[in-house]
């Protein structure tokens, strides 16, 4: 377990107000330790994706962010665009739900991977390519040399998400923000990608803030979890506690809904 003092991200009273005055997020308090996987759980409309985007200064245009978000010794809220851009894709990376829309369909992966590296570092093409290959091997991409020459549509869904993951870890970030990274994937692929996240955390020591609607994802991957409802934190604690004895009524209701499906109604069991 990571040392308790090694605080990577600290959110205090984080709030997000849309241009029309709607409070998307209210008074979010959340800590992420180094090497920790924290899940943000919520249903559609809970504001969970907006939480991630607001950390990167990518919230909807016209919206206002308030409160504080400290990443290491820097304050993210109110940070200038150019400074934020230096952090994005370098110290903080992002993994999206739909890899197809996050990749440029007209460029081979080699160029897209190298581009990310060269945006942040003075690095030669040959060196960058070597680094890209290494990242693809880290995510267990089969035949990485071949993949570098391919276009996104030539890969399967799982392979694409692996490529995205490779792109996200190129710069060995401290923090990976993942927005429903496995929702669009098949069951078998989903498990593989989730386990890959766990492995990367071990090997690279990075922290992951993982947005999901699925408590099963929490059970498989997360150390701690926060439950979000209507933009507010209703519960926060260890994943184990959340999955065995949730303290909030809403948490209990969510868990019950999933458990019910895992245990079929008695009359069909016979």
């Amino acid at each position: 377990m990571p040392a308790e003092t090694d605080l990577l991200l600290q959110l205090r009273n984080l709030a997000l107000t849309r241009a029309d005055g709607l409070q998307v997020l209210q008074a979010i308090n959340l800590d992420v330790q180094r090497g920790e996987i924290v899940a943000v759980v919520g249903e559609s409309g809970s504001g969970k994706s907006q939480l991630l985007l607001s950390l990167l200064g990518l919230a909807m245009p016209g919206s206002k962010t308030g409160g504080s978000a400290r990443f290491l010794d820097q304050e993210l809220i109110g940070m200038g665009e150019s400074q934020l851009r230096r952090l994005r894709g370098d110290r903080i990376s992002m993994l999206f739900q739909d890899p197809m829309s996050a990749l440029n369909p007209y460029l081979p992966l080699r160029i897209q991977l190298i581009e990310v590296l060269q945006a942040h570092r003075q690095i030669g093409s040959a060196q960058a390519q070597a680094r890209a290959l290494e990242a693809l091997r880290t995510v267990h991409m089969p035949d990485p040399e071949q993949v570098l020459r391919q276009y996104p549509h030539e890969l399967s869904g799982g392979m694409r998400q692996r490529a995205m993951l490779a792109m996200a870890i190129l710069s060995e970030p401290d923090l990976l923000l993942a927005d429903e990274p496995t929702t669009a994937l098949d069951v078998t692929t989903q498990a593989v990608v989730l386990d890959l996240l766990l492995e990367l955390r071990e090997r690279l020591g990075m922290s992951i803030l993982l947005v999901t609607h699925d408590l099963g994802v929490v059970a498989r991957t997360a150390d701690r979890a926060v439950i979000l409802k209507d933009g507010q934190v209703v519960e926060q604690g260890s994943a184990l506690q959340l999955l065995t004895a949730p303290s909030s009524a809403y948490g209990a209701q969510l868990l019950q809904a999933v458990r019910q499906l895992e245990r079929p109604p008695a009359e069909l069991d016979s």
Binding site: L194, R220, E262
Partner: peptide, 15 residues
């Protein structure tokens, strides 16, 4: 094996 479960013990086993 891949199916996610909210049973924490089972989830850790599969992982």
């Amino acid at each position: 094996e891949s199916t996610l479960t909210v049973d924490p013990v089972l989830a850790r086993q599969r992982r």
